[in-house]
Simulated assay, not measured.
Amino acid sequence: MPDSRIRLATPQVACRTAFVGMTLLASLCPQARAQSEAEILSNLRGRATASFVATDGKEKRYVGQHCEDVKPDSTYWNDVLADYHGLRVQDCRPEKSYTSSVGRTKVSVNARALVLLPSAEMVAATVFQACRRSVPDTRLQECADTTLTHILESNGAQFVVSGLITEPKSEGYGAEERWDPICRKTKDEDVLFSFRDGVTVRLVGRDRTSWRASLKDGCKALAQPTEIELEEYLRANVASVKNYGRITDMHRDAYASCTNASDLKAPNGDGAWRALVKANFIQAWKTGEDKILNEWVRAKFLPTESCSLK
């Protein structure tokens, strides 16, 4: 194992100083700072890899089950994937099973979605770049760890281009459902939710974003869509757009405040917000720079009255 102690034998005066704070040393000695940054980036890669890749080398993330690359001659490239040319979009059919809270029966939920699954290296580099851009050296490690944890716990860095995936039923609850004893009892059960361009959406003809009944019907899960229906939902028209954009999972109002982009706020800003989340992730995939993540980091670690996560 290489010696991790910083060697002070150097012609540079600052680096010959025996007792200096690590922050000062890092700022005065480029080699020391580079080594520290390399270690932080390596740690990010390791954590992301552990979350994304199983011990047998297969994809570990839920959405990445039963996937195949969208074929070059697929008609999806003509419509729902028209802006995603050149990216590795996968057609996935993830499955989840659980034991129902009422009746204790086994329930299986089958999903279908076109997805982008960034690699551990891509996510680590994007997180590191966002933190390096905004925070001082003294908070770089904290920022990197906190930001990656936020992404992993929010959505696992799974960008759903189009389709349905499962999430806990409570993700779509309002205040009434959260306090209703029947709905609360089944809040952790998985149901399908519809997505488009990295944002939860309500499709035309649907009452809500998720496949569950209303409060008066006990929030019970709706019937499993057929294979044909699941495919049709990939191209279904969008009626409304919700607030959080993947993979950063930043609320549109917070982003709008940080960037003075008032046109993004609901409901009139639905189209603009969806388009921004899509364009941002495509750019992040190609360049490593995620502008929404940059603003999240700034709001989290350098909050101001106009730019914070409160």
Rank of each mutant, 00 (worst) to 15 (best):
G288E: 02
N243F: 03
K242A: 01
I247G: 01
A284L: 03
S262W: 08
L264I: 03
W273A: 05
S308Q: 14
G245Y: 07
K310L: 14
N260G: 04
Y233C: 02
N280P: 11
Q283V: 11
N243M: 14
T226K: 10
T226C: 09
G269F: 05
P267C: 05
D249M: 05
Y233N: 10
K291Q: 11
T287Q: 11
F281G: 08
V297C: 00
A236F: 10
L230T: 05
Q283C: 05
A254G: 01
V238F: 02
A284S: 10
A279W: 02
A279Y: 02
N268V: 08
R252E: 00
Y255P: 02
K278V: 06
L293W: 05
R235E: 14
A279D: 04
L230V: 09
G288L: 00
R246D: 13
A299P: 12
D270Q: 15
P267K: 07
Y255G: 03
T226L: 03
D290H: 04
T304M: 12
N294I: 03
K286M: 03
Q283R: 11
R298S: 08
V238I: 10
S306Y: 12
A254Q: 06
G271I: 02
M250K: 06
L264E: 00
N294L: 07
Y233S: 15
L230K: 15
